[in-house]
């Protein structure tokens, strides 16, 4: 019952907002090249599916690849960083610098240096996505229950055993939290990089479709592409939330059913 309300409430808000949007567009007679109504956008999604869907796949491929690399490398770097405070102190500031430098500013350079565009896009998306995994996992690996650490020492656990059976599982909720943030950021990174790259031809993603539609004043198609990007972002978030729930539901506070 409660769960159904969780879905019902936002769905209702969405429906009301869409209806209001449609009503305003119709009553004010706003032309579609300024602001198309949701019905027209939905029709455009269907009508332009042949163009938009391949672009969606291109963007999703870059996003997915960047996300996977971010997850694997973020985890690996976190493990390396937590092996010694020297390594962490020496390298962590550079990870922060990479994170805080706006991707829009570095993307042109990366696209200039890396000749193969998909790889350049992947690097941009990865740069945006990897930091949450890194910082969250570092936090997780270093916030192990001190008594459990003592317990492992007491029973003569090797460094590897303490890592595999204590620190890694302790860090799992943090790692998964990092993934949830990274998933959305990978998509943003991919779209921003596509904007900067402005690739044309068969290998163009949704951002290029938006640019293209903007140039040719096909505003409904622009909105349709935008809608697909948002939908992809929501889908990624839902998938990662599901993953986190499956992995943690038996033991972690964050995934307990209400009233449990």
């Amino acid at each position: 019952m409660r769960r159904r309300n969780h879905l019902l409430a936002p769905a209702l808000v969405g429906l009301v907002a869409l209806a209001a949007w449609e009503a305003v567009v119709r009553m004010e007679g706003i032309p579609p090249y300024i602001l198309p109504g949701p019905i027209l956008i939905a029709r455009t999604v269907v009508a332009d599916w042949g163009t938009l869907f391949p672009s969606l796949l291109v963007t999703l491929a870059i996003t997915g690849a960047a996300f996977l690399v971010a997850a694997v490398l973020g985890l690996a770097l976190a493990v390396v960083f937590t092996q010694s405070t020297f390594i962490e102190r020496a390298f962590f500031p550079y990870a922060v610098i990479l994170q805080v430098t706006p991707i829009v500013a570095i993307a042109p350079l990366i696209i200039l240096w890396v000749k193969w565009i998909p790889l350049a896009l992947l690097i941009c998306a990865w740069l945006v996505a990897f930091f949450p995994v890194l910082s969250n996992t570092v936090l997780g690996l270093t916030s192990t229950d001190k008594n459990l650490v003592d317990l492992f020492r007491l029973y003569g656990a090797t460094r590897w055993q303490a890592f595999r059976y204590l620190r890694l599982p302790s860090a799992l909720p943090y790692f998964l939290g990092g993934l949830k943030i990274s998933g959305g950021l990978a998509l943003i990174g991919a779209v921003v990089a596509e904007f900067v790259a402005g690739t044309g031809g068969a290998q163009s993603g949704l951002a290029f479709r938006i640019l293209e539609a903007g140039y040719t004043l096909q505003i409904p198609r622009m909105f349709a592409a935008l809608f697909l990007i948002s939908a992809a972002g929501v889908l990624i978030f839902a998938l990662l939330t599901g993953l986190s729930r499956v992995a943690l539901r038996r033991w972690h506070e964050s995934e307990l059913e209400p009233g449990d």
Binding site: D145, L148, D150, L151, Y155, Q161, Y165, P169, R250, H252
Partner: peptide, 25 residues
Amino acid sequence: FVFQEPTLMPWARVEDNIRLPLMLA
């Protein structure tokens, strides 16, 4: 050693928590 707090691994079942010292050895 028994600590002030139960100090159990929350991700492991009761039997796996108890088995821990044997597994490590």
